[in-house]
Amino acid sequence: MSKDIIRAESVVKILGGNVVLYDASVEIEKGEIFGVIGPSGSGKTTLLRLLIGFFKPEKGDVLLRSTAIKGRQHELYTSVPNNLDVVKNVFGFASQIPSMYMNLTVEENLAYFGHLHGLSIEEINKTGGILLKLMELEDSKETLAKNLSGGMQRRLDLACAIIHKPKILILDEPTADLDPFLRTHIWDIIRKINEQGTTIIVSSHILSDVEQICDRVCIVHKGKTIATDTPENIKKRFIDTEHIRVQTYPGKYKKLKKALSHKTIEEVHEEGQELVITTKNAEKALPHVIKAIAGAKESLTSIAVDRSSLDRVFMQLAEEDQ
């Protein structure tokens, strides 16, 4: 039995005369952290907005498991675009631009969006207190949002997105513009939110983060969802080679290239001052590489192995695109 909480079925979306999404389908399971990745303009943000109901698809449908909706369990799925009034409280949403009123304080922003989600003052106070603690904003609750730092604004934005305890939290580039330390902080918070049972759908162009945090990812490319799986499986599917990058002295690579000829090595080429060796198994190829360097009377100055990563998948897709 499927564990999905929300699914998009062959959705097509046209915006401004452009087909932004074509035949895109995803299934997101309850309680997972689901990543949506793809090059800029591939349709990630449009897909997220379709899931939350900001857009109505030209074709296909976005279906929400009815058990996620309070008081609506008599049917299996509920169409999101056709039932916006009842599904809105299921979702929380945070985009890459913090969505709040800069001239309201932290507390006032939380209270305002809590009211708009239909919460009582007691609920707002209770949940707000928990969120301020979770987001580490307790000391800044009376500070105007515009006076918060970028990281604090992002945390407040997250707090506003989950003030009503949504079943599904959709995050569009939640760590954009943040330094590595703040990025880690935000991902920690996202993980904590997820641990409380919230399904999280996240898009990010920092693929290493996505790889680490997401249970499953979906690659959107040219308006289509070309793969949905765990990061490991995605990498296996798209990347079947590894790169060994070496720098030697005095750097007579012509001679070295000849010495590297071996069954474990697929290809050797120069990239700037580096020699890039493509292999299907770096571990097996490495001894031969070191031996060849020594045989060529070169001194090894640096060596690194590029294992398969989502970044490489991403780059590969970009190259295919060009």
Partner: peptide
């Protein structure tokens, strides 16, 4: 023009 305009749409407010 407010950045919160987006969030208002996400709330169940007519």
């Amino acid at each position: 023009n407010s950045s919160a305009y987006f969030r208002n749409f996400a709330t169940p407010t007519p």
